[in-house]
Design a binder for these strands. Structure first.
Lengths: 173, 173
DNA sequence: TCGAATTTTCAGGAAATATTGAAACCAGAT
DNA sequence: ATCTGGTTTCAATATTTCCTGAAAATTCGA
């Protein structure tokens, strides 16, 4: 039934394209998102050349973004015995994907913010004018909140899937 | 004590600059983040001209980004009686800021993803080949998870601050 | 209705990011 | 030592995003 093959190819292409478009919204580049979508829905690991061909992109681009995905922990390199070139496969478990992304974003977005906030809160600690106190106060509140959110993120992304769902269900119920 | 005035000005400038740099990491533009930082730590509402001067940016830029912040719900326009021009003040309560950002990001990032996932899940519903089923399955799992996360986000950002903290404390404890 | 003060829009330039393509590099087989 | 199939790097280019500055529009008092 080659009709279904065709349909699958087409809808998968759709998925890859749209996921790529979403990626830009998310602040990650289109190619990276596309490769991720491609690998997540690939029944087998793919080589760099297959990725290049499927997405019609250059070798350099494919290479760079595959490396980046590996750095994020969303994709791993696998070696097939008897094969000389590298293959890549994506993590498919949604909870694992989620915690990986959460950890990475925390590292890139939350932690630098905390550094800035701490610096500024500390640097304005001793101020005595009303303006100085107000500034310190506001920054301090931000700092406390972000630190708190950071801890929460750790807790949640450290949970086992089942436990998280259980907890959430209670919350949603 | 003009020394402290000077120091405040300087550290506040630091904060604004660094927050702006962070903004780019977050996927929002530098100017917008800077204006936000400026208004969050301003004891009084500021006019467009004051923002322009403080950040050394053009009127167009100031205007566009102030509007954008208003659209996000992080800043509101206020009118001072007797004053013809508009003034702007930022929301300062951290929990309110958080829920506002959460809602906005959900709208911009989660919801479009859900649309894509639903389309692709539905479009591959009836597939019978192993590959087709696997594709459907993977997309469906993503869909379920994102839908779930979406609901969670609603719940949390609908909470009163106190309740959220209480809940979180139990979680962290 | 006119004019001054202010806001809004937007074409064009500047800056930042992503992508290409080709050369340099590397490892194993001969 | 050299060849072959493959990976990695990176300068040049293309694309996207941001910002400016000035013109057009709006508001409001006189």
């Amino acid at each position: 039934m080659s009709v279904e093959r065709e349909k699958l190819k087409q809808i998968r292409g759709e998925f890859v394209a749209q996921w790529g478009a979403l990626g830009t919204q998310w602040g990650i580049n289109r190619t990276m998102a596309q490769i991720h979508a491609l690998l997540m829905t690939s029944p087998t690991p793919l080589s760099t050349d297959e990725v290049m061909e499927e997405l019609e992109i250059s070798r350099g681009n494919a290479h760079t973004n595959l490396k980046e995905l590996v750095a994020w922990g969303l994709v791993r390199m696998v070696v097939r015995k008897g094969e000389r070139r590298d293959f890549f496969e994506a993590e498919k478990d949604v909870w694992t994907i989620f915690t990986t992304v959460a950890r990475e974003r925390k590292r890139r977005e939350i932690e630098p913010a905390l550094t800035v906030l701490s610096q500024c809160a500390d640097g304005s600690e001793e101020m005595t004018t009303p303006e100085g106190k107000a500034f310190h106060d506001q920054v301090r509140q931000l700092q406390d909140f972000v630190a708190f959110a950071s801890k929460m993120a750790d807790r949640i992304s450290g949970m086992k899937h089942g436990f998280a769902v259980q907890m959430a269900t209670k919350l949603l119920g």
